[in-house]
């Protein structure tokens, strides 16, 4: 079943002469359980596409269906509810809250969902174990290394059991060893938990972990391995 379906998505920034077309009439379908890497040079529109997928930004025109829901007609609050209920985010800069322990960071999405304290603690224990940081729960972000921070960020994204995990260059700030750890973690989550992952990356090595690679160029989709396979005999 198609989890995500983009049809004729266009995103234009600015007005008049300063107008920039970030996405030009994009079509994309992503099914449940896929692990998709989105590649392309900077300015190719891949981040814009991610933001639209994550309901953080709205397209100028086109249709975006999440499951059976038309997202483009939702208001800001409905989009926030959609993020709350179905999406998880991992950012390049980790985006953990300052002066807050790993555990508190993890529990925050659950706090917003009104999950009682006891269940929050249990689920935090569970995801900390999943990302291998059982003993780091009480450290603040400043006390964690970059790799550890990113693992906390991933744990925070999956603690709500989202349908879709959006990762924007999750290994962008990490050395190759840490990057591999993170990618293995994401691949495992995709395999074992069945979480659909869409990940933006610059690096071809990282894209190899994904089952499907979509390459953007100048606001168009230049290549999609899924379509290539379909076309190939």
């Amino acid at each position: 079943m198609a989890l995500i379906s983009l049809r004729n998505i266009t995103k234009v920034y600015g007005q008049g002469d300063a107008q920039v077309i970030a996405l030009d009439n994009i079509h994309m379908t992503i099914s449940d359980g896929e692990f998709v890497a989105v590649m392309g040079p900077s300015g190719s529109g891949k981040s814009t596409c991610m933001n639209i997928l994550g309901c953080l930004d709205t397209p100028t025109s086109g249709s975006y269906r999440f499951q059976d829901m038309e997202v483009t007609t939702l208001d800001q609050n409905q989009r926030a509810l959609l993020r709350r209920n179905f999406l998880g985010f991992v950012f390049q800069g980790y985006n953990l809250l300052k002066r807050t322990t790993a555990r508190e960071n993890l529990e925050l999405p659950l706090v917003y969902r009104g999950v009682p304290a006891k269940e929050r603690h249990e689920r935090a224990d569970h995801v900390l174990e999943l990302v291998g940081l059982e003993d780091r729960g009480h450290h603040t972000s400043a006390e964690l290394s970059g790799g550890q921070q990113q693992r906390v960020a991933i744990a925070r994204a999956i603690i709500t059991s989202p349908l879709l995990l959006l990762a924007d260059e999750p290994t962008g700030n990490l050395d190759s060893q840490r990057s591999l750890e993170i990618m293995n973690l994401l691949a495992r989550l995709n395999e074992e938990q069945g979480i659909t992952i869409v990940m933006v990356t610059h690096e071809a090595d990282m894209a190899e972990f994904a089952k499907r690679v979509i390459t953007f160029r100048d606001g168009h989709i230049a290549q999609d391995t899924a379509e290539a396979e379909a076309v190939a005999p």
């Binding site: 926030a80 709350r84 985006n95 925050l108």
Partner: peptide
């Protein structure tokens, strides 16, 4: 502002 952005991304609603 950035903190607010993070909160909105991980599930906070406007009213939160």
């Amino acid at each position: 502002t950035r903190e607010i952005g993070i909160r909105l991304a991980i599930g906070a609603l406007e009213r939160d």
